[in-house]
């Protein structure tokens, strides 16, 4: 009955949002949709939209939260974007999940939906030669309803502030490094999903308190049904069967990665601001840990960092898998 609770919550929170531009009537039956919340992300949006348009996304649904940098205006002019806005607290809406759950319930039924943040970029097997449509067609043919993609924190070599990011630029020209093999996995018995921690954030910001390290497991791509609901960000959802994106009998299911372009020069000011607002998860523990270290402008890079090449590299390293897609 947990699911009912989240759904009622989403229903209550719907009034916090105001529609700015609603182009959802242009959504065609087989369209692939992106759902996203954004706050002061103007600089990231041009590349974000281009990346997912090229991948084959047909329509974007944004919830913009109290921005003052032109995010709202920029999104409103995009032909394939439907935009809602909210001044209410991000935290009170369970970090945007309530808002998105409501919008997805209304507009996503029967569609393949990708729920990502503006700094998350999906990589999946064969994404250099096949579009997202090939993946969703294959998932449909295989009767698979959800697709897992672990969050892979990307970072630059050298202090974050040393290479400024400009709008429209591929963020992975700067943040092109990642941790290849320091991830820890446990099973969440309540929801049946895996709980993955590790990566540069665990080793730099939480070496003494690993339990607090942020979760990296994500299930961003789902063939949405009205009755579904995300629980905690896109880490897990209900009904529980959708969380079973991993094989328990030794085999590998197909999976992707969400390249996380969080650690750019935009990060330090953002972290300071977020700490001020106290609108993040678990009493903003994460951001407090960042702020402590960020004063010294840290370098996440180490000599064992791996430089990103392509999805095949991630598959060889065992961070994602082709499963039986060939």
């Amino acid at each position: 009955m947990l699911r009912k609770r989240w759904r009622i919550r989403a229903f209550r929170k719907r009034r916090e949002m105001k529609s700015v531009v609603n182009r959802t009537e242009t959504i065609k039956p087989n369209d692939i949709l992106v759902f996203c919340t954004a706050r002061n992300e103007r600089i990231r949006l041009p590349y974000f939209l281009r990346y997912y348009r090229n991948m084959g996304v047909n329509h974007f649904v944004f919830v913009e939260n109290d921005s003052d940098d032109g995010t709202r205006e920029y999104l409103a002019e995009q032909e394939d974007v439907s935009l809602w806005t909210s001044k209410a607290g991000y935290k009170r809406a369970r970090f945007g999940v309530d808002w998105l759950n409501w919008l997805m319930r209304r507009y996503a039924h029967g569609h393949w939906c990708l729920t990502v943040d503006p700094d998350e970029f999906l990589v999946f097997p064969f994404c250099d030669t096949r579009g997202l449509r090939a993946l969703t067609d294959w998932l449909d043919a295989s009767s698979i309803k959800s697709f897992g993609a672990m969050l892979l924190d990307m970072y630059p070599k050298g202090p974050m502030s040393s290479q400024p990011y400009s709008a429209g630029q591929d963020p992975f020209e700067i943040a092109s490094w990642f941790d290849a093999g320091n991830y820890m996995i446990e099973k969440n018995t309540k929801f049946g999903n895996l709980w993955i921690q590790g990566g540069p954030r665990a080793r730099m910001f939480f070496p003494d308190n690993p339990a607090r390290a942020p979760a990296l497991n994500k299930i961003p791509l789902v063939k949405w049904q009205r009755s579904y609901t995300y629980v905690s960000s896109t880490h897990n959802l209900l009904p529980r069967g959708l969380n079973l994106v991993y094989d328990e009998w030794g085999g590998e299911k197909a999976s992707g990665c969400l390249l996380h372009a969080k650690f750019l020069d935009t990060f330090a000011p953002k972290a300071a601001e977020e700490l001020e607002r106290r609108q993040h998860y678990a009493a903003s523990h994460e951001y407090r840990a960042y702020a402590e270290k960020l004063d010294s402008d840290p370098d996440l890079w180490c000599k064992w960092s791996e430089k990103y090449i392509n999805w095949r590299q991630l598959e060889i390293l065992g961070l994602m898998s082709k499963g039986n897609w060939a």
């Binding site: 996995i185 895996l194 094989d247 328990e248 961070l319």
Partner: peptide, 9 residues
């Protein structure tokens, strides 16, 4: 290998 889509019992 233990990863997001392979976590054997």
């Amino acid at each position: 290998l233990y990863m997001q889509s392979r976590f054997p019992n």
